[in-house]
Lab assay of single mutants.
Amino acid sequence: MLYVKVKTEDGEELVLEVEGMTEDEIREELAKAGFKIEEIEVYEVEP
């Protein structure tokens, strides 16, 4: 499983499960949803 931890400019932290997306695609999708991203951390969790 691939997850991203996202910190927004307003200090909110989100953890999202993503599969088959690049970091650029993740940033693009979050921007479309109205999030202003300060930091993204991508990590993989073994089942």
Results as ranks from 00 to 15, higher is better:
residue 47 P to G: 08
residue 14 L to Q: 03
residue 17 E to T: 13
residue 34 G to W: 03
residue 32 K to H: 06
residue 33 A to M: 15
residue 2 L to D: 01
residue 25 E to A: 07
residue 27 R to D: 00
residue 47 P to A: 07
residue 40 I to P: 01
residue 11 G to L: 02
residue 3 Y to L: 11
residue 28 E to I: 10
residue 25 E to W: 04
residue 11 G to T: 01
residue 8 T to E: 01
residue 13 E to A: 05
residue 23 E to D: 05
residue 12 E to W: 14
residue 22 T to R: 05
residue 45 V to G: 08
residue 24 D to H: 09
residue 4 V to E: 00
residue 19 E to Q: 13
residue 15 V to T: 07
residue 31 A to I: 12
residue 16 L to P: 00
residue 25 E to G: 04
residue 32 K to P: 00
residue 46 E to A: 11
residue 34 G to S: 02
residue 20 G to Q: 05
residue 12 E to Y: 13
residue 16 L to T: 01
residue 20 G to N: 09
residue 27 R to G: 02
residue 47 P to C: 10
residue 4 V to H: 00
residue 26 I to S: 00
residue 18 V to M: 10
residue 36 K to F: 06
residue 38 E to D: 10
residue 28 E to L: 10
residue 12 E to K: 14
residue 4 V to L: 04
residue 36 K to I: 07
residue 45 V to P: 07
residue 45 V to W: 11
residue 45 V to Q: 09
residue 35 F to T: 01
residue 3 Y to M: 09
residue 32 K to R: 12
residue 28 E to S: 10
residue 28 E to N: 09
residue 12 E to Q: 13
residue 20 G to D: 05
residue 7 K to M: 09
residue 8 T to I: 05
residue 30 L to D: 00
residue 39 E to W: 15
residue 43 Y to W: 11
residue 24 D to M: 10
residue 41 E to F: 14
residue 1 M to A: 09
residue 22 T to Q: 03
residue 10 D to T: 10
residue 14 L to P: 00
residue 35 F to G: 01
residue 20 G to R: 08
residue 5 K to E: 01
residue 9 E to D: 08
residue 37 I to R: 09
residue 36 K to L: 07
residue 37 I to T: 06
residue 47 P to S: 09
residue 14 L to S: 02
residue 24 D to V: 09
residue 23 E to N: 05
residue 45 V to H: 11
residue 6 V to I: 12
residue 11 G to F: 02
residue 31 A to Y: 11
residue 44 E to M: 13
residue 40 I to Y: 07
residue 28 E to D: 08
residue 30 L to N: 00
residue 13 E to K: 03
residue 19 E to R: 13
residue 34 G to D: 01
residue 18 V to K: 02
residue 45 V to E: 06
residue 2 L to A: 06
residue 22 T to I: 02
residue 46 E to T: 10
residue 45 V to M: 11
residue 24 D to I: 08
residue 30 L to R: 00
residue 45 V to K: 10
residue 17 E to D: 04
residue 9 E to L: 11
residue 19 E to L: 12
residue 26 I to D: 00
residue 40 I to K: 01
residue 45 V to L: 10
residue 40 I to L: 07
residue 24 D to R: 11
residue 35 F to K: 01
residue 37 I to G: 06
residue 47 P to T: 09
residue 33 A to G: 04
residue 29 E to T: 12
residue 9 E to V: 12
residue 9 E to T: 12
residue 20 G to M: 06
residue 35 F to M: 04
residue 23 E to M: 15
residue 25 E to D: 06
residue 28 E to P: 01
residue 15 V to K: 03
residue 41 E to S: 10
residue 11 G to D: 03
residue 35 F to V: 04
residue 27 R to C: 07
residue 42 V to P: 04
residue 8 T to W: 07
residue 16 L to D: 00
residue 39 E to H: 12
residue 35 F to L: 05
residue 16 L to S: 01
residue 15 V to F: 12
residue 11 G to V: 01
residue 46 E to M: 14
residue 12 E to P: 03
residue 1 M to T: 12
residue 15 V to A: 03
residue 5 K to M: 05
residue 26 I to N: 00
residue 27 R to I: 09
residue 24 D to P: 06
residue 7 K to A: 04
residue 33 A to Q: 12
residue 8 T to M: 13
residue 9 E to C: 14
residue 10 D to R: 08
residue 12 E to I: 14
residue 46 E to K: 12
residue 35 F to S: 00
residue 26 I to P: 00
residue 28 E to K: 11
residue 21 M to H: 07
residue 12 E to A: 11
residue 23 E to K: 09
residue 31 A to M: 12
residue 1 M to G: 06
residue 47 P to W: 07
residue 31 A to H: 09
residue 46 E to G: 09
residue 26 I to G: 00
residue 6 V to G: 02
residue 28 E to M: 12
residue 40 I to R: 01
residue 21 M to E: 03
residue 15 V to P: 00
residue 10 D to Q: 08
residue 19 E to V: 13
residue 20 G to C: 07
residue 43 Y to F: 10
residue 28 E to C: 09
residue 47 P to K: 07
residue 20 G to A: 06
residue 42 V to T: 05
residue 19 E to T: 15
residue 18 V to N: 01
residue 11 G to Q: 02
residue 8 T to A: 04
residue 45 V to I: 11
